[in-house]
Write a protein that binds this DNA or RNA. Sequence first.
DNA 1: CGAATAAAGTTGTACTGTACAAGTAGCAGG
DNA 2: CCTGCTACTTGTACAGTACAACTTTATTCG
Lengths: 154, 154
Amino acid sequence: MSSADDARVELMRELKAASQLQHAWIMQAWQDDPGLHPAAAMLLSDLAKHGEARPSELAKRRFVDLSVVSRQISQLSAAGMVDRRPAPEDGRASIISISERGREELGRRRAGYLKFMERALGDWDDEKVLELTTRLAEMNADVRAVLGGRTCPV
Amino acid sequence: MSSADDARVELMRELKAASQLQHAWIMQAWQDDPGLHPAAAMLLSDLAKHGEARPSELAKRRFVDLSVVSRQISQLSAAGMVDRRPAPEDGRASIISISERGREELGRRRAGYLKFMERALGDWDDEKVLELTTRLAEMNADVRAVLGGRTCPV
DNA sequence: CGAATAAAGTTGTACTGTACAAGTAGCAGG
DNA sequence: CCTGCTACTTGTACAGTACAACTTTATTCG
C-alpha cells in the first residue's frame, strides 16, 4: 500500500471518527435541550438553506430512502416546524417549507451548536474553519457525484 | 449571526452531510461484500492502528458505551477477527487484539474503500487529501478534548 | 376515452447502532 | 471475610435507516 493510499485510509478513519464524535456531542446537546430530534433538525436545516421542496427531492438530496423523509416530515409537521401544501401540478405530491416556528427552533439549535463549537474550536481562526469547510464541501460534492451517478456500481 | 458563525454552521452542515454520505456508500459497499459489519470494522481498524487494548479503553477512545464495544467484540471474536486473552493482572478484564484473519479482512475492506475513494476523489492530489485529513484530525482532537474533558457540560 | 403502467407518498416490518439499567464476576481495603 | 468498587455482560428501548406492500394520482397508449 502506497503512502498515498495510507493518506486516504487515514482520511476515511478521520471521517468516521468525526461522525462518531458528532453523534456523541449531538446526543449530549440533545439531552440538555430535547426540543427536536437530531435527524429531523438536519432536514429542517436543509429546508432553511435550499427552500421549499418535495419529499422525494429531500430524499434524493440526502441519499436516504423516501420513507425516512416521509416520517421525519410527519414529525416536523406535527411539531409545527414545517408547512406542507399540496403541489399545484401534482396531486400525489406535497411541497414542504420551513415554518416561522421552524426557523426559530433552528436558530436556537444553531446557537447551541455554536456554543459547543466555540468551546471545541475556540482557537481556530476563521480561515482555518473556512478551509476545512471548503475542502469537506468539495469532498461531499465529489462523493455525491459518484453515489448519484451510478447508484449501484458493479 | 456573524459571518464567522455562518462558517461554523456550514462546517457543521458539511460534517453531517459527510456522515450521511459515508453511511450511504458504506452500506452500498457492504451489500456488495457483506463480510463484516461496518461498525465492527471500525473497531478492527482501531485495533490495527493502536494495538491491543481492553474493551473499556476502546469504548473511551470512541466515546461510545462499553456495552456497544462489548457486543462488537463478541461479533468479531465469533468471526475470528480478534483474539481475546485474559488480562494478566485483572481477572475481570480481557485484552483484545486483532488476529491474522482480522488483518486480512481489514485489508480487503480497505481495498474496497480505496477503490471507492479512487472513483470519488480521483482528481484530488495527495496534498489536498493530506490537508483535509490533517484538518479533520485536528478538529477531532479538539472535539475529543472537549467531550472527554467535561463529559456533561452545563 | 379507458385500461395498463408508472410515480409519489405512506405505512408496516426488520435490522443496526446506540444508550441506559440491571446483573455478574473479580479485585481491594478495612 | 465483608463491603464496596470496577470491568464487563446482558436485557431492553429507541433512533435511524432500508425494503416491501399499499394507496392515490399521473401518464401513456391502444
